[in-house]
Simulated assay, not measured.
Amino acid sequence: MFRRLSVLAFIAALLFTVRTATAQSNYTITDFFVPNGPLQLQVRKIVETTYSSRRKLPLLLIHGGTGATTSFDLNLEDASFAKSLALGGFTVYMMNIRGWERSTAPVYDLADTSLVAGSCQEAASDIDAVVNYILQGNPNGKINLFGWAAGGHWAAYYTTLHNDKVANLIVLNSLYGVKAPWAFNEAFADAADSSKFSNSIPTYCQSDEQGVADFWKGRASTDTISKADSATIRAFAKSAISFNDEHLLKTPGGFQRESFYMAGGRKYWDAKDITVPTLIIRGDKDFWSRPVDVDTFYDELTSAPNKKKLTIAGGHFLFLDYSGNGRRKLLIAINNFVKKGL
């Protein structure tokens, strides 16, 4: 009797293992590195395999102040924006700009306070290396680009240089070069003269797990997702600091420096130089971008064959807002624009 129960238990365990493996095999996840000179750029590819015969469009996700894995493929149930996009029929690629997560970075001169570490020029070079890798063997191929926050700035700048490689550009919660009040002006500006950039932004920015969580929670009054799901904040913060032995979110500080100047009216690129269909999205409670960024960006897209601006209820981390439906609306907007031009 005992032997029979053992056999049944073994069969049950085997069936459970097979079912689990089958459920997990809905997505194929591939991690690899793409070289850019001496640098190694971390890339993750996600393909949904249940509908393998469906035509899948390539979509590259560009992160903002936190890395690609933390932002777009958070290891929490129903929290992966990348998998949601893959389920919608995209072959999803996520990349980390130099210095983010496991992407390597140059040896910067930490004593040089004028240095812009991780500048938009460097970011564009990294994006181009990954795009060329994705499109290799397809000389006439193009990729869809999605950039969030600083990633939108980088993706747009890249597009002005390489319109021929971009099928559609989508930016979320990104600044444009418009002089207008900004939530971080006081934090980044010199106390004696707000027109001067403060040396409070070092070559590298860093924060511990609690600091990452506090930054998100500190925006709770303007960010719906902060109020909606504290479990997401904890998972996000834990992931953000997990990529080095110091257990810190440590990133090049150039994106903050450039953002400060953009919010004060400096343009690193001009929307008129973008010649591909462009979708500009903003969460109505975003604390990084401003409504004037969306409007001015849209108005100056004079060469884009198709353009659209859209405001969605939600905050800065709209792609993680699955409790408040922000992510669902974002996914619908991306699918409609890329696949139908709507």
Rank of each mutant, 00 (worst) to 15 (best):
M1G: 14
F10R: 03
A12Q: 01
L14F: 12
L14H: 01
T17C: 15
R19D: 09
A23E: 13
I29H: 00
F33Y: 15
L41S: 08
R44C: 07
R44T: 15
K45E: 14
T49I: 09
T50H: 06
S52P: 05
L60T: 04
A68F: 05
S71D: 10
D73V: 01
N75R: 12
L76Q: 07
A79V: 02
K83A: 02
S84F: 01
W100G: 05
L110I: 09
S114T: 12
A117N: 03
S119M: 06
I127W: 02
I127H: 02
K142D: 05
I143V: 13
W148I: 00
G151W: 05
T159M: 08
T160K: 06
H162Q: 04
V166I: 09
N173W: 05
K179R: 14
A180N: 11
W182N: 10
W182H: 12
W182S: 10
A183R: 09
S195Q: 11
Y204A: 06
S207T: 12
E209I: 11
G211K: 05
F215D: 09
G218I: 06
R219Q: 09
S221Q: 11
S221F: 10
A228V: 03
S239P: 04
F243T: 00
E246L: 11
T251N: 02
T251P: 00
P252R: 04
R266D: 01
R266N: 05
K272Q: 15
T275C: 15
T278I: 13
T278G: 14
L279Y: 06
G283N: 12
V294N: 09
V294Q: 13
N306R: 15
K309M: 12
K309D: 09
L310F: 05
A313L: 06
A313H: 09
H316F: 06
F317M: 13
G326S: 04
R328T: 08
I332P: 02
N336G: 10
K339P: 00
K340L: 13
L342Y: 08
